[in-house]
Simulated assay, not measured.
Amino acid sequence: MKIAVYGANGYQGRLVLAEMARRGIETVLAGRDLARLEEAASAVGLPGAERRVADTSDHGALLNAFRGCDGVINCAGPFTSSGEAVVRAAIAAGCHYVDTSGEQLYVKKIFDAFRTEARNAGVTVVPAANDGCVPVDLMAHLLADRLGSVEEIITTHAVVGGGGMSRGSLRSVVETIDSIKAGGLTYDDGDWRPGAPARRTAITLPGRSEATPVTPFPVSEVVTVPRHIRVRHVQGLTEAALGDRLNTPLTPQIIENLPEGPDEDSRRTQHFTYVIDATGTDGRRARGTVQGPDTYGTTAVIAVESARRLIADPAEPGVLAPAQAYHPTAFLDFLVPHGIRRTIEDTAAT
């Protein structure tokens, strides 16, 4: 098994490389700058790994970078401006593809633009293989099985600690700020629509005695969940305080003067809680909760395992949601030793 990591020299890319090295998976480092790729290879203990240089503007170079590989993990954001080129080249090279994007409109565009191309090539594409979308999408599927028929799914993201975002994440925020300010897409009666008001303004999160104010947010599972669950409404929320922080103006100069990303000690202090509230058509309700540490480290684990599973146990070709590509319980069980805990409980009927 050979997997190419594009954007291998970036902050998230290096964490993915470290996970690849830990698991002994043959790795090709791909990116725009040979010197930075060599530095990354040495830093993560892969000094002998092959390095291939390719810019996203050069399809031929990308194709050569992925040729002979079984899969591609794309860590090079912002994905909105460059991700499609990497997807196109991976499909042309016959490689299964995952990425670490959290950019909602980009994720939807990959579904819309590449499903036929990927299917015809016999390739599986799973965008947004990150700490949030994969476990939340899988949990939503389990909740739908529990309720039988689903009217509404509301997901809420809450993250505390961790020392802030990486430069790459901040660049993605800048590139998608209009979508963030508008609250992203909401799925409603068969289509995705922007600018919908929050269906809830406060949610009581696990371990908190008082309700937390929340605001609409462009999470990727709003795009993926309706592809495998028959549901009328899906919306993503986050803590209102996070939404306020992300609205703070950022410039490229400010971002460049920040650390590349949180250090390891800071990441150890981070804790995320993702809540999935599902309401059945009969009024019954169930809540799924996913909790764990270190969003960037968890994303590395999930991205590597997502690519590995596509290669070792192929799914249907095309662009798929996580729950279409992987067995939900099996994948969630894999995450338990990595500190990712999940619960499902019935809640009071409406």
Rank of each mutant, 00 (worst) to 15 (best):
L29F: 06
G7N: 08
G280Q: 06
D112K: 06
T212Q: 04
G207Y: 13
I180W: 09
S82C: 10
A8N: 05
L143H: 05
D294F: 06
L143N: 04
S57M: 07
I3K: 01
R14D: 06
G161Q: 03
A90S: 09
A144I: 05
P314W: 12
Y6A: 00
V231F: 03
S266D: 11
A303R: 03
D333T: 15
A278F: 03
T215R: 14
A202K: 15
R193P: 00
R341K: 15
H59L: 09
V98G: 01
R171N: 10
A241W: 13
G280C: 10
T100F: 13
R67G: 02
A90D: 07
R230S: 12
V290A: 14
H338W: 15
A300G: 11
V159T: 15
S179K: 04
E316W: 08
V5C: 03
G195A: 09
T299F: 09
K109V: 00
A158T: 07
G164E: 05
A278L: 08
A21Y: 04
E39W: 04
E50A: 15
D294T: 10
G77W: 09
L250S: 10
A35I: 08
A303T: 02
G283W: 09
R268K: 14
Y326R: 01
L15H: 15
L15W: 14
A330K: 12
F217Q: 05
A330V: 02
R245H: 13
P317F: 11
G13R: 07
E117Y: 11
Y97P: 04
H338P: 05
A323L: 01
C133F: 07
R36L: 13
P328H: 11
G292H: 05
T251W: 04
H96S: 14
A21F: 03
E84V: 06
T238I: 12
V44Y: 08
G292Q: 12
D333Q: 14
S82D: 00
V222M: 06
E151W: 09
G261P: 04
G7E: 02
D137Q: 05
L246V: 10
G288T: 13
R200T: 12
T124Y: 07
V28F: 08
Y97T: 00
S179G: 11
G122L: 12
L46N: 10
G280T: 05
P127H: 05
A128P: 04
R88C: 01
T279N: 02
C95Y: 06
A61G: 06
D263G: 12
D191S: 15
D70I: 03
A30W: 05
R308V: 03
A129Y: 08
P249E: 09
A49K: 01
P249F: 08
I3G: 00
P213G: 06
D58S: 14
E264S: 13
F114Q: 01
T56P: 00
S209N: 11
E210D: 12
T350V: 15
V173A: 03
F331N: 00
Y11H: 14
S209K: 13
G261R: 07
K109P: 00
D131C: 14
G71L: 01
G243H: 14
G122Y: 06
I229F: 04
L62Y: 04
A93F: 10
G280H: 01
V107L: 06
I154A: 08
I276P: 00
T186I: 00
A144F: 03
D313C: 13
